[in-house]
Amino acid sequence: MDPLESKETYKQYVDKKSPNSPILKNCFNAFWVGGLICSIGQIIFNICKERGFDTQMSGTIVSIILIGIVAFLTGLNLFNKIGKFAGAGSLIPITGFANSIVSPAMEYKSEGHVMGIGGKMFTVAGPVLVFGISTSIVVGILYLIFNAQSITLV
C-alpha cells in the first residue's frame, strides 16, 4: 500500500500510525481532580452560606478564592504540573480559566507592563469572554423578545 496515494489516504495512514493518548488514564485523572476541585468549591460555598451570604454572592466568593489559589499555584510554577496530570480535570473548572489568564500575563511580562502583561493577558482566555458574554446577551435579548417564562422549555 502506498500511503502517499492521496491526502486522504495519508491522513488515514497517519491517524493509524500516531499513538493515541492514554484516554482511560486521562479520564480517570480528570474525573477525580475535577471532582475534587469542585468539591473544595462546594465546601467554600457551604461555609459562605452558613455565614449568611446569598447563593449568588457565595458562588462569586467561591470563584474568587479558587482563582486566587490558581494564580498563586501558577506563580509558583506548579499549576502546569497539575494540568499535565489532570488534563480537563483542571482545565474545565474555573481554575483552567484563571490559569489561562495568569500564564500569558507571566509569559509576556518581558514585553513590558502595558503591552506585555496588559495586552497579552487575554490571548488564551479572551475568546471565552467574547463567546460567553455574546451568548449571554443573545440569551437576554431572546428572553426579552419572547418575554415570558415560556422561554424556559423544560
Binding site: N20, S21, I23, N26, C27, A30, F31, W32, V33, G34, G35, I37, C38, S39, G87, A88, G89, L91, I92, P93, G96, F97, S100, V124, A125, P127, V128, F131, G132
Partner: peptide, 25 residues
Amino acid sequence: TSGLICVIGQILIDKTKLTPAKILV
C-alpha cells in the same frame, strides 16, 4: 457531576484536535 463534566472535556481533548481555548469556548 463535576467529575463527569471534566471527563467529557478530557474526551474532547484526546479524541479531537481542539485546542484548550476552543474547548473552554
